[in-house]
Design a binder for these strands. Structure first.
Lengths: 282, 282
DNA sequence: AAATAATGAAATAAAATTTTAAAATGTGTT
DNA sequence: AACACATTTTAAAATTTTATTTCATTATTT
């Protein structure tokens, strides 16, 4: 249990009237007290600054500042970080939005990292690492994930083929063979274009990696490697951003894994050994 | 989870020489710092009291006392050494990569949500909400963020103009006027094209919103509203994914804020009241 | 060479602590 | 019960310590 607060409690019978008032206020508002001054706290409790100092000494703590530090240290024990689970509402103010959106996103990442199959990840890394050419496609909004991965791969000299226009992408994919890899992102796994690409891949003997969210879909059956992002409770219909974030994090993991496979050659180029600022990504 | 220390670390590249000395001391002796005064810490680090205060402000905390309180809150958690802390290495196995990359990303989100200025966010939301037309541009890898936002805005019937090709974007931007808004993403804030766009915006009286990471850059001085993503401890030179994730989360927040401004009309369309699956984003 | 940024010393402001004197409470004596 | 005396508690004021701002100087960039 909370140390300082329990000390305060244990002194209940020893306190004078004024001290008791101070103690009660502290017990009820520990997190507020942490950022008050002696003057503030004196006003809030209807006592005096001297009373606050005396209170600290009484419970065996040398100064008010020390008391606040000790209190702050203890508070965190309680503070398992706030998780803003409630749905987004019209009444939410901007701070609510930040809390909810960021904590959800962060939660989605943590969930995914727990559920992610290391085995499938390694299959994907190996396939891409040893592929002759990588064809990347992201359906609709997921296209940015495919794009991000494409840019990364090009940087380390892996031949990556990506086109936003699905027809161009199909034309390009028509040349796939078994030494290539198809990498598709489809949150739902039901997108028509993705299914078509996967079918072509199968016909041509090209291994396919699917980055998806739905646990059951037509696309799953057609892919060789499946990377799952955690499900999210959607509360907004437009823009499944949390899913997008986890997809990007998976892509980042794949990319880093590939870099490591490439080993020493790439090490100095890729890893930030000395000057992080020298190379921009913007 | 060790927020303040991780924020301090993330600023490593932004610090001046003196600030770096202070940061190093804090990182090595967090539990001591908690009970030091500005003077003490100044002496211990061979700097000045002013330098200590400046240090706190630099990392976005507005007083030394607040800094100490925040630090004290974090200290107990410190016991379990978090893995995102160690750099990615050639020897890491896939599980290590997942742990490091995901926990860093998650950390970056948390840091950003703490430091994000609600005031600037609201300015941005209002500007976009009431703009006649929004011009979006993302430099290099950040283009996917601009793209993501563009897709979202188009869905709620806001006129959004985005082009991957900077020349087309410039041509389009040449028509900007004061009822429009320019929204640019530039992690470094030094990208030539972004600076040009900002200059054009200024000439034409168009308010500009900048989504960036660096705390000091040429672009900052040219923008009307600045949205900061938290700095990250870069350990890989290619692909500032953590920054990208936080940028996307900020975009998501802006978007949701705009939807809320639009109110009832949009509510049933946007918010998931019953069937989340009916509308795909893929 | 001029502009810009970083820095510490000194001045100022704010906060914490101690001192002090008055008020309240308690104790023993008649 | 009434009084004197001692003790404790208290808050206002004085003092000390700590935090913050200002400003002139030095370093760095452009």
């Amino acid at each position: 249990m909370v140390q300082v607060l329990s000390i305060v409690k244990s002194y209940q019978n020893e306190f004078t009237k004024t001290e008791k008032v101070v103690a009660d206020f502290i017990l009820e508002n520990p997190s507020i007290v942490v950022s008050l001054t002696t003057k503030n706290l004196a006003v809030q409790t209807g006592t005096s600054e001297a009373a606050i100092i005396r209170f600290c000494k009484r419970i065996g703590i040398n100064s008010f500042t020390d008391f606040k530090i000790a209190l702050a240290k203890d508070l965190d024990f309680n503070k398992e970080e706030p998780f803003y689970d409630s749905p987004i509402q019209l009444e939410d103010d901007t701070q609510d939005l930040v809390n909810k959106i960021f904590s959800r996103s962060s939660q989605a990442l943590q969930n995914t990292s727990q559920l992610l199959s290391i085995e499938e990840l390694e299959k994907a890394i190996d396939l891409i690492h040893s592929a002759n050419r990588v064809y990347l496609y992201g359906a609709g909004g997921s296209s940015i994930v495919a794009q991000d991965f494409t840019l990364k791969l090009l940087r380390i000299n892996i031949t990556a083929s990506h086109h936003q226009d699905i027809h161009v992408q199909m034309m390009s994919a028509a040349n796939m063979n078994k030494d290539d890899v198809l990498f598709v992102v489809s949150t739902s796994g039901e997108t028509k274009e993705v299914l078509e690409l996967l079918t072509v891949a199968k016909e041509r003997g090209t291994p396919a990696i699917l980055l998806t969210q739905k646990k059951k879909s037509k696309a799953r059956n057609k892919a060789n490697v499946i990377l799952d992002t955690s499900l999210e409770e959607q509360s907004i219909r437009i823009g499944t951003t949390a899913a997008r974030l986890t997809q990007l994090a998976i892509v980042d993991t794949l990319f880093t894994g590939i870099c490591i496979r490439k080993g020493d050659k790439i090490y100095n180029y890729i890893f930030d050994t000395h000057d992080a600022t020298s190379r921009r990504n913007d």
